[in-house]
Design a protein around this nucleic acid. Sequence first.
DNA 1: TTGCGTACTATTGTATACAAAGATATACAT
DNA 2: ATGTATATCTTTGTATACAATAGTACGCAA
Lengths: 226, 226
Amino acid sequence: MARRPVKAGGPIARGGGVALGEAVFRSLCEALQAGSYRAGDRLREEEVAQRLKVSRTPVREALGRLAARGFVEPARRGLIVRSLDISEVLELYAMREIMEGAAARLAAEHASSTEIDALRDIEQATVEIKEADAAEMARLNRAFHEAICRAARNRYLDNASRELQDWIALLGPTTFTVSGRPSTSHDEHQAIIAAIAARNGDKAEQLARAHIREALRCRLKLLQRQ
Amino acid sequence: MARRPVKAGGPIARGGGVALGEAVFRSLCEALQAGSYRAGDRLREEEVAQRLKVSRTPVREALGRLAARGFVEPARRGLIVRSLDISEVLELYAMREIMEGAAARLAAEHASSTEIDALRDIEQATVEIKEADAAEMARLNRAFHEAICRAARNRYLDNASRELQDWIALLGPTTFTVSGRPSTSHDEHQAIIAAIAARNGDKAEQLARAHIREALRCRLKLLQRQ
DNA sequence: TTGCGTACTATTGTATACAAAGATATACAT
DNA sequence: ATGTATATCTTTGTATACAATAGTACGCAA
């Protein structure tokens, strides 16, 4: 097997007010989302510990948290990075449709005018960056969905959405790398904001759900390329 | 302070094919749900370790998982058991309404006839136990909701529902201790099953949501007693 | 050659020792 | 009496050593 070098970062910053276990956890999350570890890769405690220049103890803690979330799973020996097959991707987006729909409806009920303005600002920012910058688009997109979840005033919904977002990140390239997607996504966001501003919960939910279905279409295109 | 004795069980079973960290985690979960530890109680690693006759290492692992889920939270020193104020209870049930509604709709689409029969069997069992047995009612109720989630064919929905269920368990006495609730709950369940059997997703969702709202009414009664 | 058993080794699981941080108590000054 | 500085002590965070277990390779026999 062609032992692809694991290029995830070197030693970890120590004593920055944050415990090593936490730092290792973040480092591994980043590595996972950056694709430094890929689906099916094996993770050994000692290997991670040596790379980050810490002992196995905080590494075990971090891996435990990763395993609890399901991002890695126990294998014959140690842990392997979880991979999502097509049916799981469909379920994941189905779940997002439920959550984002509910969040948009609740946001239409509860969002303050300040929060609605913040949504508009985020979308304004997306037209001011160059279309090709998919990473920045993805960042603003996350900000948009998080802002809606916050406006929904339900911390369980917020947590669940955040976790789904983490799973999406595990899929690798974002749907904004599909040509034309940044623009259509922006239009859909605008429509959702308008419905929320009009306090039309039904419409906000319907639009948010359609938005996620469009995202799934792009995701499936992306998966077929691979 | 009147140092209520912590009566959570003694030493843990060792070597039963399950790692100590896992065993400690389960033990603490049970203790939490049984009310042996109450909201606001402090958890010290050493104390738990001595009681269960293990070292701090597996205890830390278990506490880490508990903290990741939010059941305990870091305090000035160590961890304290999380307590839910009234607004969180409302958010919790609002989230359940979303999830159970979605699950019922999807179950109406995907449930096999075998699964629908299984739902009927569970409800049949509830009429065969004596009304006063709230614990058994609660067990069957969980089985009912889990069966619907499974029938919905979405593992993210299933996981999220299970987590909400764990939060509910943290609230202590179940809504079945409210007089008359076992009976009305049964009726509501029957209606949900009928809608699922009729493949009427809209109605199944609407009924499931109403069911959770009724459960919330009982929960609020229960909270007012305290 | 193939199947099985056994030794070995890689890796995780647990305990313990030690370091660091932070709370609490005490003494002293005002 | 009250506030502040400092010492002490409790508790968590990290490293390391050791135990247990599961995979792998090797040898031997059929």
